[in-house]
Amino acid sequence: MKVAITSTGDNLESKIDPRFGRCAFFVIYDTETKSTEFLLNPNKNASNGAGPASVQMVADKGAKKIVSGEFGMKIKSMLDGLEIQMIVIKDHQKTVKSIIDMLK
């Protein structure tokens, strides 16, 4: 299964990005192959609709779970429809690596 994690940077030591739609990077982690892929978020500075555009990007990658700090209003019903689970991390100091360790 693939999990998307919002990240502030492009490596495993980066902290989680608390914003979903406007995060700096998406990390796509595959729980079966243990591979990670870092994607620059082109919607970071979108004037509007960053959330739905980011859902589209992450869903396109086949992610079934998203780990982030918070999710906007517009996308919750979309994610429900796509059967993608939202996981909210309250501790924004957590690194991408520590989140991946929790998923293992």
Binding site: S47, G49, P52, A59, L82
Partner: peptide, 17 residues
């Protein structure tokens, strides 16, 4: 230009926001 159309071709999902 406003991200108002949400589309996922592989899942045959398209929606107007």
């Amino acid at each position: 230009s406003y991200n108002a159309i949400f589309i996922l071709p592989p899942y045959k999902i398209i929606r107007v926001i």
